[in-house]
Amino acid sequence: MDVLLQAIVNGILLGGFYALMGMGQNIIFGVMKIVNFCHGEMLMVGMYLTYMLYTYAGIDPYLALPLVALIMFLLGAGIQHTLITPSLKTKSFTNLLFLTVGLGLLLSNGALVLFGSDYKSIRTSYSQTNIMLGPVSVALPKLISFLVLIVVTIALFSFLKYSTTGKQIRAVSQNPVGAEVCGINVKRIYLLTYGLGIALAGIAGCLLTQFYSIYPTAGASFGFRALIVVVVGGLGSIPGAFFAGILLGLLEQMSALFISPSYSDMIVFITFIVILVVRQLLIMRRR
């Protein structure tokens, strides 16, 4: 029973990262209709950024969080401005597919050249601290990460729902022509959205550093799971992404507990494929 509870808590905590990644991918896809195939690599960049700030400047990972988010936002906006905006003009999905996949390869290989392939980690004074929640023991960094996730989710949701810029982002995602008619600067919204999506990946990377090894392909599995979260959680829905992320984390921990940890990846993707097929069949039947 305690083992089950422990797995549930771990699943929720892990799912938080999938949710964070999924939300970033979701707003990028929602607004620009492009799948950001370098989303996982952006998480990895956030990890190395946090690592460098900690190792060379002695900044605590949690204090570095706003800085990492800001740098990642600027990086995202820069990529949008110099690479994606010109590529969007071609209106070619293939073009953007190659662009973002290529960027991902560039980033992971760049990290390989700069930092080597060995696993790096950050060990703070509280990395190993555990807190008992009833019968369940939780690592303090994981708990903090989850609280940060909740704050970020609520902030993002409120930003999109109530602020003028947030409403403009939704307007562009629903109808770019209508948005231009209303004088909304669509290019500026693209810049903000891509920056925001990348900042979310950076936040996830920063939070992960305390209990996940840092290496050039560390982001790949998170990048793929972000896509699942978008599809399962529903396009444009922040709460949907949040719950889909948590569910995904739970599924992974449950299959690790009841079947085998080495099969959990496989089970996640089989479930995803089943969901896709069943959903498609349901849609076809409705027609």
Partner: peptide
């Protein structure tokens, strides 16, 4: 073709009309 923001409320659509 109107080009409304279909998932946003009527009021939000009207708010988007105020650009300056």
């Amino acid at each position: 073709g109107r080009q409304l923001f279909t998932d946003m409320t009527v009021l939000e659509n009207l708010q988007m009309g105020a650009f300056s």
